[in-house]
Simulated scan of single mutants.
Amino acid sequence: MLPHPVTAEALADAAAEPDPGSLAAAQRLRRHHPPEVAAAALEQVTLRRRASGKFGDRAASLFFTRDGLEQATRPSVAAHHAGRFVLAGVRRVIDLGCGIGSDAMAFAEAGLEVIAVERDPHTAEIAAANLAGRAEVITGDAEEVADALIGAGDGVFLDPARRTTSGRLWRTEDFTPRWAFVTALLDGSRTVGIKLGPALPHREIPAAVEAEWVSDRGETVEVSLWSGPGSVPDSRSALIMPDHRLVADRTGGRPAVAGPGRFLYEPDGAVIRSGAITVLGEELGAWLLDDQIAYLSADRLTPTPYATAFEISEVLPYSEKILRRWVHDHDIGRLEIKKRGIDGDPAALRRRLKPAGDQEATMIISRTPVGARVLIGRRVR
């Protein structure tokens, strides 16, 4: 089933276009297809090519909307969501606000019965095309249909709409469905998963709910809230896909603060957002360079999936004159600049330093106990 008004012939013609977003491509397709069919096919091919970074080769057989692609769950993370329901003993999942169906597809592939709900009729049609009969898709408002759909033993998944035509929404009170509806689902009576943006403040997380920050391929992509069977109440954790988990210590302790050691660790975003940096510091025997900055340092190297390690060769004052001379003297051409807690644009600084040689280096700019310093590092692979 293809979403209206796309046809297989128009999709094939659009896929043959090197630049489906160009005026020339639109003119060529309109010679053989009605304007609305040509436009829809070109839009799908454009979105499929954009989606390849998130969905890989699978993108070529899926359908998207622009907003749906932005909010869609990566297949690996969706499979993780599905696995949580399976481990909790759930047999049917009610996916409230399914979008283009990325999570619903993973639920169905995991052997779960799925009812997917989407408020926007066009997006619901896209979801139905992607699910291809593997789940029931209902067009409706999650708040209005939830009571009628959710039965005893059902799991519930919800990815609230966090975008409008004006852009991304940041305040929970602006989400759809209403935040009060979302949090009411997390009462512990059934297995419930709520997918949210990773910047969700800890203060917004209801009591006794598990919060799991997820990083995939180096990018922190979400925080999911879980309650009911299969969840760990009142826990905060970082999950580095596929299976590295670091649970935060909720006692409020922090690592000591000291100057740079031989190695610097840049923790993964999920570790930072979950508050697990203290636990990571203990595992690495590391300290902070500044109490408010998420750089850890140590004198010995400990392999870890939770941070990127750099071996520090020099520590310089934060002076552009000194840095420019260092770049020149060391024949640096490929220069990576990282910073935390210091004002300024790394890209602009890099241009001013004028790297033009054959060597490469990483500069890490941070506050330290003795002021701003630049750590010259080599990424440890």
Rank of each mutant, 00 (worst) to 15 (best):
I194W: 00
A309E: 03
E314H: 15
A128F: 06
M105R: 12
R190E: 06
A298L: 05
L289W: 06
E36H: 12
P20H: 06
E222Y: 04
R162M: 00
A14T: 00
A106R: 07
L11Q: 05
A348L: 09
F310D: 03
A307P: 01
D13Y: 11
R350H: 00
L296K: 08
G259W: 02
T308F: 09
E136H: 12
V209P: 04
F157I: 14
R325W: 10
A82M: 03
G285N: 04
Q27V: 13
V114K: 08
V90I: 15
I365F: 11
I322P: 03
L96G: 08
A184D: 01
I240C: 06
T191L: 03
D67Y: 09
V182Y: 07
P229S: 04
G344D: 08
A104M: 11
T308L: 14
G253S: 15
R171H: 09
H33P: 00
G68A: 02
S189R: 13
P18I: 05
A211P: 06
L11W: 04
I94Q: 08
P346G: 13
D141K: 05
D216L: 15
T73S: 13
A142I: 02
G151W: 01
G259H: 09
L296Q: 02
R334W: 14
R171G: 02
K339H: 11
R217M: 10
L349Q: 02
T139H: 04
P255C: 13
R28H: 10
R351C: 08
T191P: 05
G188A: 00
P260H: 10
I337W: 00
T164P: 03
W170K: 13
T251R: 15
F157Y: 14
P3E: 05
R31G: 14
